[in-house]
Simulated assay, not measured.
Amino acid sequence: MLWYVLKLLVLLPLIGVMIWGSLKLAKKMQGQFGAPTGGSKAVRIVESTMLSPTLRLAVIEFHGREILVSTSRNGLVRLAEAPARLEAQDIVA
């Protein structure tokens, strides 16, 4: 019985530390896999606004176009599309 309690006191914190470490590593590595190797990404979220707990509006930039989408539990719906706006960092003098 003493051996069982001793193993429990040693292994339970060890398992907790392993779980905590794997969660920290997953958070640190999030978004690094599957990215294009060319540097810039093809899809970028420009702006996002929460309308209700289940409904959100987002502006997505994709290949020089800005697309307004509505996201909900049912999926995405494209609402509008326009040419991408030039930002200050994109303008070269």
Score class of each variant (00 low, 15 high):
1 M>L: 10
2 L>S: 15
2 L>Q: 15
3 W>Y: 06
4 Y>A: 08
5 V>C: 04
9 L>R: 13
10 V>Q: 09
10 V>K: 11
11 L>Y: 03
11 L>M: 10
12 L>M: 06
14 L>R: 04
15 I>N: 00
15 I>K: 04
17 V>G: 07
19 I>G: 09
19 I>S: 11
20 W>L: 09
22 S>K: 12
22 S>F: 09
23 L>P: 01
25 L>F: 12
25 L>V: 11
26 A>I: 05
27 K>Q: 14
27 K>F: 13
28 K>A: 11
28 K>E: 12
29 M>K: 13
30 Q>K: 07
31 G>E: 03
32 Q>V: 07
32 Q>E: 15
34 G>W: 00
35 A>G: 02
35 A>K: 08
36 P>C: 05
36 P>W: 01
36 P>T: 13
37 T>R: 08
38 G>F: 11
39 G>L: 13
40 S>Y: 12
42 A>S: 15
43 V>M: 02
44 R>W: 14
44 R>L: 15
45 I>F: 07
46 V>G: 04
46 V>N: 05
48 S>T: 13
49 T>S: 06
52 S>C: 03
52 S>R: 05
52 S>L: 06
53 P>D: 08
53 P>F: 04
53 P>R: 00
53 P>Q: 01
56 R>G: 00
56 R>A: 02
56 R>I: 01
57 L>F: 09
58 A>K: 03
59 V>P: 02
59 V>R: 09
59 V>A: 12
60 I>P: 01
61 E>G: 06
62 F>V: 14
63 H>I: 14
63 H>K: 14
63 H>S: 15
65 R>S: 07
65 R>T: 15
66 E>D: 15
68 L>A: 05
68 L>Y: 01
69 V>K: 00
69 V>G: 05
70 S>F: 00
72 S>N: 12
72 S>P: 04
73 R>Y: 04
73 R>M: 07
73 R>S: 02
74 N>R: 12
75 G>I: 01
77 V>S: 13
78 R>Q: 13
78 R>A: 12
81 E>Q: 15
81 E>F: 08
81 E>Y: 08
82 A>Q: 15
82 A>D: 00
85 R>I: 09
86 L>K: 14
86 L>M: 08
87 E>G: 07
87 E>I: 02
88 A>L: 13
88 A>E: 05
88 A>T: 04
89 Q>K: 10
89 Q>I: 12
91 I>G: 02
93 A>M: 05
